[in-house]
Structure formats: C-alpha cells, structure tokens
Amino acid sequence: SSGAIIYTVELKRYGGPLGITISGTEEPFDPIIISSLTKGGLAERTGAIHIGDRILAINSSSLKGKPLSEAIHLLQMAGETVTLKIKKQTD
C-alpha cells in the first residue's frame, strides 16, 4: 500500500543558501517538489530532504493552491530560519 509521511525540517541558513532547487508550475494545485539538492549544501546535510519530496508549507505558509512563483517568493523572503513542511511518498 502506498502512503506518505509528513514532517517538518528546520534549516538555519546563517546567511548562506539553502541548497535546494524547487520545481512546479503556475497551475495553483500542481505540487511543488524538490528537484535538486546542492552537493554538500545545507539541505542535503540535514539528511531529511530528498529529490522528489513535496513541499507543503514554507514557514507555516501553506503552498496549497499556490503557484511555483509564490513558493519561490516565500523561500526568498523566509529569513535566517526556514521551516519546510515536507511530504514524502513511502511505497
């Protein structure tokens, strides 16, 4: 049976990049997913974020019904501590 787990990851960026690339579309209900991780970057080092994971919220702002451009804007405005709500498929 296919299921999913949902969890929250807190990234402290200390002025540096998060080390993630996200992808999606401008269709508001398409998923926003992690499309790549910078090798040795902040997100990869947590061990908790993987390519293909879906981002449900950024700093408690839900991405439900929001296009990719809004998600990118939220990441850019997120500040030093970025909290990502992640949904991972478990097959």
Rank of each mutant, 00 (worst) to 15 (best):
S1E: 07
S1Y: 14
G3F: 10
G3N: 14
G3Y: 09
A4D: 13
I5F: 14
I5R: 15
I5T: 09
I5Q: 15
I5Y: 15
I6F: 06
I6T: 09
T8D: 14
T8E: 03
T8N: 12
V9D: 00
L11H: 03
K12N: 11
R13Y: 05
R13A: 15
R13M: 08
Y14R: 15
Y14Q: 14
G15I: 07
G15E: 15
G16S: 12
G16K: 11
G16C: 04
G16Q: 10
G16L: 05
P17Q: 15
L18Y: 07
L18A: 03
L18W: 13
G19I: 01
G19M: 06
G19K: 02
G19S: 03
G19H: 01
I20Y: 01
I20M: 11
T21Q: 14
T21E: 10
T21S: 09
T21F: 02
T21K: 11
I22K: 00
I22Q: 02
S23L: 03
S23G: 13
G24N: 06
T25I: 02
E26N: 11
E26C: 07
E27H: 12
P28Y: 05
P28S: 10
F29D: 13
F29Q: 14
D30Q: 11
D30P: 04
D30N: 07
P31N: 12
P31I: 04
P31A: 09
P31L: 01
I32Q: 03
I32K: 03
I32C: 06
I34T: 00
I34G: 04
S35A: 08
S35H: 09
S35V: 07
S36Y: 13
S36R: 10
S36G: 12
L37G: 05
L37H: 00
T38K: 10
K39M: 06
G40Y: 10
G40H: 12
G40S: 06
G41E: 08
G41H: 01
L42K: 05
L42P: 15
L42M: 13
L42Y: 09
L42N: 14
A43K: 00
A43N: 00
T46A: 11
T46V: 06
T46F: 03
T46G: 11
G47T: 07
G47C: 08
G52F: 01
G52H: 05
D53V: 00
D53Q: 00
R54P: 03
R54V: 08
R54H: 14
I55Q: 00
I55F: 02
I55Y: 00
I55S: 00
L56V: 12
A57M: 12
A57F: 04
A57S: 12
A57N: 08
N59F: 02
N59M: 00
S60Q: 13
S60K: 13
S60F: 09
K64C: 09
K64F: 10
K64P: 06
K64R: 11
G65R: 06
K66W: 01
K66S: 06
K66Q: 07
P67A: 08
P67R: 13
E70D: 15
E70V: 12
E70A: 10
H73R: 14
L74F: 12
Q76R: 13
M77C: 07
M77N: 10
A78S: 11
A78F: 01
A78M: 07
A78K: 06
